[in-house]
């Protein structure tokens, strides 16, 4: 069952949505989330929930002009994103 998830992601010619995968495997969406988390913890999937999250902008460090920039984590101009999982190649 867990491997079916990886297989579906790997063989899909286009990106999949979680709900589409849930339908294909007939697994409840919430249960699928748990399985995806398992693969993330095992290092077989990577999850990007906040692109650039935790990275501090150090543009023009020390100069007044960009000191007000709060960095990607708090940047109000960054669009609220969504989770994306991708296969991690070993």
């Amino acid at each position: 069952m867990l491997h079916a998830i990886l297989h579906e992601i790997q063989t899909s010619p286009v990106p999949l949505t979680v709900s589409e995968l849930s339908r294909r495997l007939n697994i409840q969406s919430s249960a699928l989330q748990g399985m995806l988390q398992f693969w993330v913890q095992k290092g077989r999937l990577t999850m990007d929930d906040a692109p650039g999250g935790g990275v501090e902008i150090r543009v023009c460090e020390g100069r007044t002009c960009f000191r007000s920039c709060p960095g990607p984590t708090h940047c109000p101009l960054q669009s609220r994103s969504f989770n994306a999982y991708s296969l991690k190649w070993s």
Partner: peptide
């Protein structure tokens, strides 16, 4: 993902390429 972020501001979008 970074390209969509670029519509808001290019700076965080460049940092988002770290993903």
């Amino acid at each position: 993902v970074p390209l969509v972020l670029g519509f808001g501001c290019n700076v965080p979008a460049i940092y988002a390429t770290r993903t």
